[in-house]
Design a protein around this nucleic acid. Structure first.
Lengths: 237, 237
DNA sequence: CGCCGTATTGAGCGCTCTCAACGAGGGTGG
DNA sequence: CCACCCTCGTTGAGAGCGCTCAATACGGCG
């Protein structure tokens, strides 16, 4: 079960990897940045911060998965990204001066490092290596976001789910997986919010994929079986 | 005809302003950056660069309007942003090493300055002021993009058009307008591609707004008449 | 065992797409 | 100057996707 190179390559346009490598920083900067981090622990569904709040600092996700989402006036939610271990986030509103445009909550038990606004900005201002890494990350993420926006604007639910499953197969990858399909463990409501639909429609589309043996389902968990066909269905060329 | 403060404030979450202020740069950096720019002129519909090409440099739009879009495998296009005078763009793929994720073409006669990849990166690497401005810009644009993505994923065509018209009212603002509504001059195909629909549906929705006197239409041009109601309709709270 | 939240299945409807025809406007050539 | 064409915009009819509402099944937990 090896994912064809062609698919991996195309998927990169849709995958975040906001993984700043602190080891590349000069030792002095690294120490200053990481010296005074504080640990944050979250239980499933616990909210880290909410849309509209002021940005207080930067977080590094050490363990677990987070959802980043927006709440709409009608109560519906849209999940914009799902972060996995290693991801650094929360720096964008710090830099632009905007309020938090999103809310962040835990999908499972999470462990995070918190770096305060002041400390982060101080190191950023003087460290060219850090600011270059952030620039590089954000540039890529911007590309990813434009690609995803196109998908949301133009594609059917079936196409979006096909793509979402390929993305989540990466997000849920662990060392144990190797090249095997990941166990995508997420409840229907969250998955629906991620592809921008309602749980009923999602369930029907999942059944459609299951019938055609594109995926395997067991309880909440989903495994991709047929990467080729999901890729074709996703229509990302 | 004054736009209520509340609406202006909410719209900021959806407006780009990638306007790097070169005057804030140290004179030496500014000179180095701008010394060797070359002028580019575009006629309407002319393509500046295409999706998948390598990033060759950075552009500053001095005059005119550009569309930034993606072409889908089925031939449909999605306009992601519309740039106006003052906007700087093209630096993101330079920084992330991605290929151009988008194509750029002129909506009207355009005049641009071109800064080569090497020169831009050279100045960026040593100028903290420039890299901070770019960071700040990109952070805000990221926020805008997440907000727009949510709209595309969740909202009806009517809601999207209401929002699009409020955004374009800003994009098409000139000194002449003052606080008066702008003349939004864009053909139906492009406007449809901007809100993620087809021209037929767009026309019907425009008629709907026209009947209710939310907008005024003359040929291709559209003027917003009722900001309050369009704002409510857009559902961005 | 009963309860509550979550997932599935069904029925029906409305929005938006597709396909097709027609109209308006601008440019070109006779 | 007029006839023609080509593109763009509008209008109409019909179909299908995806939403809502409602009922039922499932599963973890007290």
């Amino acid at each position: 079960m090896v994912i064809p190179e062609k698919i991996k390559l195309a998927l990169r346009r849709f995958e975040f990897h906001s993984q700043v490598d602190f080891d590349k920083l000069p030792m002095r900067d690294k120490k200053e940045l990481l010296a005074a981090t504080s640990k944050v622990l979250l239980k499933p569904k616990e909210i880290l911060f909410s849309q509209g709040s002021n940005a207080v600092g930067v977080f590094v996700l050490k363990k677990g998965k987070l959802k980043v989402y927006q709440l709409n006036y009608d109560g519906s939610i849209q999940i914009l990204f799902i972060y996995r271990e290693g991801e650094i986030f929360g720096y964008r509103p710090l830099l632009s001066g905007d309020r938090q445009p999103v809310s962040v909550a835990a999908l499972e038990n999470c462990e995070l490092d918190f770096i305060s606004r002041e400390r982060f900005l101080k190191v950023l201002r003087k460290s060219a290596v850090l600011s270059n890494q952030i620039l590089e990350n954000m540039s890529h993420e911007f590309t990813v976001l434009t690609n995803r926006m196109n998908v949301f604007a133009q594609r059917s639910i079936r196409e979006r789910l096909a793509l979402a499953l390929l993305i989540l197969n990466e997000t849920f990858k662990t060392e144990l997986c190797g090249s095997k399909p990941s166990e995508i463990l997420i409840n229907r409501g969250d998955l629906a919010a991620f592809i921008g639909t309602v749980p009923e429609t999602l369930t029907r589309t999942i059944s459609y994929f299951k019938e055609r043996k594109f995926i395997r389902v067991n309880g909440k968990s989903i495994w991709v079986k047929d990467f080729e066909n999901l890729f074709i269905l996703s229509g990302i060329e």
